[in-house]
Simulated scan of single mutants.
Amino acid sequence: MTTENNKLIVQQALGALVATGDVEALAPLLSDGFVHHRPDANDRGKAAWLDAVRAALVPLEGMRVEIKHVLADGDHVVMHSRRGLPGGADIVVVDVWRLDDGLIAEAWEIIEPVAEADAHLSWWEEPAGR
Rank of each mutant, 00 (worst) to 15 (best):
L103C: 07
R82K: 12
A107R: 05
L85Q: 13
V92C: 08
D100K: 15
D101R: 14
R82W: 03
V92N: 09
D100W: 07
L85H: 07
G87F: 11
H80K: 11
D90M: 10
V93H: 09
W97K: 03
I104F: 06
E106N: 04
H76A: 15
D75P: 04
E106W: 05
A89Q: 15
I91V: 15
D101V: 00
D101I: 00
G88F: 02
S81C: 12
D100L: 09
R83E: 10
V92D: 12
E106S: 11
G102Y: 13
G102F: 02
L85N: 10
R82F: 04
W97V: 03
L85W: 01
G88A: 09
I104M: 11
G84T: 11
R98F: 01
H80D: 06
P86G: 10
E106I: 01
D75G: 06
V94Y: 06
I104V: 13
V77I: 01
V77M: 03
V77E: 01
V93I: 15
R83Q: 13
V92E: 12
W97Q: 04
V94N: 14
D95C: 10
D100I: 02
E106M: 01
D101C: 00
V94G: 01
L99V: 08
R82M: 10
V78F: 12
V78C: 14
D100Q: 15
H76W: 00
D75F: 03
H80S: 08
A89W: 00
M79Y: 04
S81N: 07
V92F: 02
D101M: 01
A105D: 05
D100M: 05
L85S: 03
R98W: 05
M79D: 04
V78Y: 02
V77R: 00
D90A: 09
V93E: 14
G88T: 07
E106A: 11
D75L: 05
L85E: 09
D75Q: 06
V96D: 00
L103S: 07
V93A: 14
D90I: 09
A107M: 15
L99H: 12
V92I: 10
V78P: 02
R82E: 13
D101G: 05
P86V: 14
V96Y: 01
I104R: 02
L85C: 05
R83T: 10
W108Y: 07
V77K: 01
L85P: 00
V92L: 04
L85F: 06
H76D: 07
G88Q: 09
P86N: 09
A107D: 10
W97H: 09
L99I: 08
A89L: 08
E106D: 11
G84A: 14
A105P: 12
M79I: 09
A89M: 15
W97M: 06
V96L: 11
V96C: 08
G87V: 15
G88Y: 10
P86F: 11
V96P: 02
A89G: 03
W108H: 07
W97N: 04
L85V: 07
D100A: 01
V96G: 04
G87L: 05
M79L: 02
E106R: 05
